[in-house]
Design a protein around this nucleic acid. Structure first.
Length: 468
DNA sequence: CAGAGGACGTCGCTGCCTTA
DNA sequence: TAAGGCAGCGACGTCCTCTG
C-alpha cells in the first residue's frame, strides 16, 4: 500500500537528505534534494527551508514567465490571423522576385513562370481562394496530378513541385502559414532520356557531309555566319576529344600544344568548381586536321566565326582578337565610343546546336522522335503522361557519348577517360557501369566451386596429385 | 527562323539515420 | 558520439523545342 502523498512545497528528510517536493509547471510531481550554493547539504530543517525557498521562488518566476509566453503566443496568433487575411496570392510574386537567393537571369524568369502556372491553375479551379493560407495539401496534389497529365519528364515535374514548395516556404512568415501545402506532394524518380552515341557507321557520313556541295549551313539574319569548313573542325574536335559543345566552339589556339601533342583546357560547365584543367591527348587525325588549318599567325579562337556565333555578346572582342575570320562580318568601328549596332541575341548558343542537328540530319541520322506534320494532321497525339517535348536522340552531345562508349569498348581505363572529359561526368558512369549479363553469368559460374567449398578447376590437378 | 519558353543535368550542401 | 552512407534540396548552367 502506497503512502499518502506529501503536501506541496513540503520539506522533509528522505534517505538521510533534506528534500523539497513540488509540482512543476507541467503538472508533474518533482522531488529535489536540497543543496546550498556551495553544494553543502542543509544541517537542519530551518536551513533546508531557506534553501527550498530559493528553488520555489525560481519556479514561481518561471510559472509567471510561462503565462506571459502564453499571452505572447495568443498575440502572435491574432497577428497571424490578420496576416492571413491581408496577404493575398497577388502578393506572392513580389516576394519571389525580390528574394535575394534567386538571382536575376533566366532562372528567375523560370521561377516566375512556374509560380504563374500554379496561380493560374488555382484561379481556374478554385476562384474563391484568394489567400495562400486557404491553399490545402489536397489542392497542391490536384495541381500536381494535372501537371503530370500534361506530359513532362519527371525531373521537370519535380522541378515544379520543388519550386512550389519553395514559394510557400518563402511566404511562410508573410502569409502567417504554419504548414506548407506542397510538403507531402511526392517527387517522382528520374526517368531521363540521354543522347545516344552516334552509330559508328555514321561517322564517315557526317564527316563527308561537311564537304558535300549539297550540304548548306543554316542561314540566319541576326547571327554571325559560319563556314562548312569550321563546322567540320567543330565536329572533328568533338569527335576526337569528347568535349561539350561550348568547350569545342570556343576552343582557343592557346590551348593547343602541338609540341607535346595535347590540348589543355578548362570545361566551362564546371569552371566555377575549380576542377582544374582537362588534359586531352591529340589523336593523329585531330592533329592533322588542326595543322591543316593552322598558320603561324594563328591566335584567338580556332573557329572564329563559330565562336562569334556562339557568344554574340562578346562578338566585338572576338572579332578584334581574331585575324582569321573566313567569312565577311559587319565592319567594326575603330572608335570604341561608337556603338556597334548589333542586335541583342538571347539565344544561348547562337543556334549552334541546331546547326549540328542540321548536319546530322543531312548525314541521315534520325535526330528527333517528335511527331511529323503528317502524323499531327492525322490526329496522332502523345499518350497521357508522356513528356511534351520529344527527346533529342542525336546532337553534339552524342559525340561525347560516342567518345566515352568507344573508350569503354576499347578497355581504356576509366581513370584516363575521367582525366580527359572530367571526373564527375554522368556519361562515364553510363558506359563504364554497363553490365554484360552473359559475361556476368560466366564469371559467377567460374567461381561457384569456391563458394560451395569445392576446389576450383585450376586447383584440381594439384589436389589429385597429392591424393595419389 | 529568332528567341521565348521549357526541359534537363549536375554540383555542393544539409539533415537524417545507422554503425562502430 | 563521431563518422559515414544516403537521399533530397536548392541553385545554376546548358541544351532543346516550339511558335508567331
Amino acid at each position: 500500500m502506497s503512502q499518502a502523498r506529501k503536501s506541496l512545497n513540503t520539506v522533509y528528510l528522505r534517505r538521510g537528505r533534506w528534500v523539497v517536493e513540488y509540482i512543476d509547471f507541467e503538472g508533474k510531481q518533482k522531488i529535489k534534494t536540497l543543496k546550498g550554493e556551495n553544494g553543502n547539504y542543509p544541517a537542519n530543517k530551518l536551513q533546508a527551508k531557506r534553501f527550498a525557498e530559493r528553488i520555489l521562488t525560481d519556479i514561481r518566476t518561471m510559472q509567471n514567465l510561462r503565462s506571459e509566453q502564453e499571452f505572447l503566443n495568443r498575440v502572435a496568433e491574432c497577428q497571424q490571423l490578420i496576416q492571413r487575411i491581408q496577404f493575398t496570392l497577388d502578393d506572392v510574386l513580389p516576394i519571389i522576385v525580390n528574394n535575394p537567393k534567386l538571382k536575376n537571369g533566366t532562372r528567375l524568369q523560370h521561377r516566375k513562370y512556374q509560380w504563374e502556372k500554379f496561380y493560374n491553375w488555382l484561379r481556374a479551379h478554385y476562384p474563391r481562394v484568394t489567400v495562400p493560407h486557404d491553399v490545402t495539401p489536397l489542392m497542391a496534389q490536384q495541381f500536381a496530378n494535372d501537371l503530370y497529365a500534361e506530359g513532362m519528364a519527371n525531373s521537370t515535374y519535380n522541378d515544379y513541385i520543388t519550386s512550389c514548395r519553395m514559394f510557400f516556404k518563402m511566404i511562410m512568415i508573410h502569409a502567417g502559414l504554419t504548414s506548407n501545402p506542397f510538403t507531402h506532394v511526392e517527387r517522382l524518380p528520374k526517368n531521363t532520356i540521354s543522347h545516344k552515341p552516334i552509330p559508328r557507321e555514321f561517322i564517315p557520313k557526317i564527316l563527308a557531309a561537311c564537304d558535300d556541295p549539297n550540304f548548306q549551313v543554316l542561314e540566319t539574319r541576326r547571327l554571325a555566319p559560319i563556314t562548312k569548313a569550321e563546322l567540320k573542325t567543330l565536329i572533328v574536335v568533338g569527335l576526337c576529344t569528347g568535349m561539350r559543345l561550348k568547350d569545342c566552339a570556343l576552343l582557343d589556339w592557346s590551348c593547343i600544344n602541338f609540341e607535346n601533342n595535347y590540348i589543355k583546357t578548362v570545361a566551362y560547365k564546371t569552371k566555377k568548381y575549380d576542377k582544374g584543367y582537362l588534359w586531352i591527348p591529340m589523336m593523329p587525325y585531330l592533329r592533322k586536321h588542326l595543322l591543316s588549318i593552322y598558320d603561324w599567325q594563328a591566335a584567338g579562337p580556332i573557329m572564329p566565326n563559330i565562336a562569334c556565333r556562339y557568344e554574340d555578346k562578346d562578338r566585338k572582342e572576338l572579332l578584334k582578337k581574331s585575324n582569321k575570320l573566313s567569312v565577311s562580318v559587319p565592319m567594326i568601328p575603330d572608335d570604341d565610343s561608337e556603338e556597334l549596332n548589333l542586335p541583342e541575341i538571347k539565344s544561348d548558343n547562337g543556334n549552334m546546336s541546331n546547326e549540328v542537328k542540321n548536319l546530322l540530319k543531312f548525314a541521315g541520322l534520325p535526330v528527333s522522335t517528335r511527331l511529323t506534320k503528317a502524323e499531327k494532321a492525322n490526329g496522332v497525339t502523345k499518350p497521357i503522361g508522356q513528356r511534351k517535348k520529344s527527346p533529342n536522340l542525336y546532337g553534339f552531345h552524342s559525340f561525347r557519348h560516342y567518345f566515352v562508349s568507344t573508350c569503354a569498348e576499347c578497355n581504356i581505363p576509366m581513370a584516363y577517360v575521367e582525366a580527359i572529359i572530367g571526373n564527375e561526368s554522368e556519361v562515364i558512369r553510363q558506359y563504364y557501369t554497363h553490365i554484360d549479363t552473359a559475361e556476368m553469368m560466366r564469371s559467377i559460374s567460374r567461381i561457384e566451386p569456391k563458394f560451395i567449398g569445392m576446389p576450383t578447376q585450376a586447383a584440381l590437378p594439384q589436389l589429385q596429385e597429392t591424393m595419389g
